[in-house]
Design a binder for these strands. Structure first.
Lengths: 126, 126
DNA sequence: CGTCAAGTTAGATGTATGTCGAAACAAGAG
DNA sequence: CTCTTGTTTCGACATACATCTAACTTGACG
């Protein structure tokens, strides 16, 4: 795992006074290992269909939605929707459970919050 | 442009009581236009090299770094780094300016904060 | 001017990814 | 058991992307 969960993509507010090349870093930047672990997560949400899928699930009552809800919202075939859901699931962004006839999906808020924290300044650390 | 800047990917805390298919949404989910506008932004950061580039720039003193700093941090050729920087620049995530011999890059915090806000709960709206 | 160094752009290539239809596969309902 | 609903798998295809080499642009310095 990564040893830091800081907004390493947000600059620290500091004066702009450097005029020379190769100024030193003020914080430890994202390591290669961390970057290669994070990139697939962002890649999972870097798709219009998957963004909408996440949003549709999150905006549903109870925070979960069944696949029929999701499929109807797109002009895509069932298998394609299923593929995108699988991508999101493999990334850990969503989970699912079969309940009777239908399969329900819900958001994993922790993962999304982690990505959010890395991108921007967090006003609280849970 | 998008008319909402809410954490539409985070579920509202609510009871899980739905047992029927096709429950209604509790909020307006991300529209297709918004999703197609956001996806390229996430795609821009969905790469290990670009994530590290952003981090390297953000962590540098003064919030800016010159290309030589960045190139040295990778086992990639100059043109490849330049290509990734261009992707980030086209997405509006960074800006650059030539200052004498070197070109300096800095983060555009607003765009990153916007993405952060969409992914997770924001503790402040400014 | 002429030359050197720093970056960018252009072109080419191999790989990865999104999309899809058809078919196979669960899981309940009657 | 049989039918219905819905999901997953499997190839196949087109597109997009990361990366390289080579050539070009721009500014600094004699």
């Amino acid at each position: 795992m990564s040893k830091q969960e800081l907004p390493v993509l947000q600059p620290l507010a500091s004066d702009t006074g450097s005029t020379a090349c190769c100024t030193p870093p003020t914080r430890e930047p994202l390591g290669q290992a961390d970057a290669e672990e994070l990139a697939p997560l962002f890649k999972a949400i870097a798709d219009p269909v998957r963004l909408r899928l996440l949003s549709l699930i999150a905006c549903h009552e109870g925070g979960e939605a069944c696949v029929c809800d999701l499929t109807d919202a797109f002009d895509l075939t069932g298998p394609t929707i299923s593929h995108h859901l699988k991508v999101l699931r493999k990334a850990g962004l969503i989970d699912c459970e079969r309940r009777g006839t239908w399969v329900y999906y819900w958001i994993n808020p922790a993962v999304l919050e982690r990505l959010s924290a890395i991108l921007g300044p967090r006003r609280g650390t849970s």
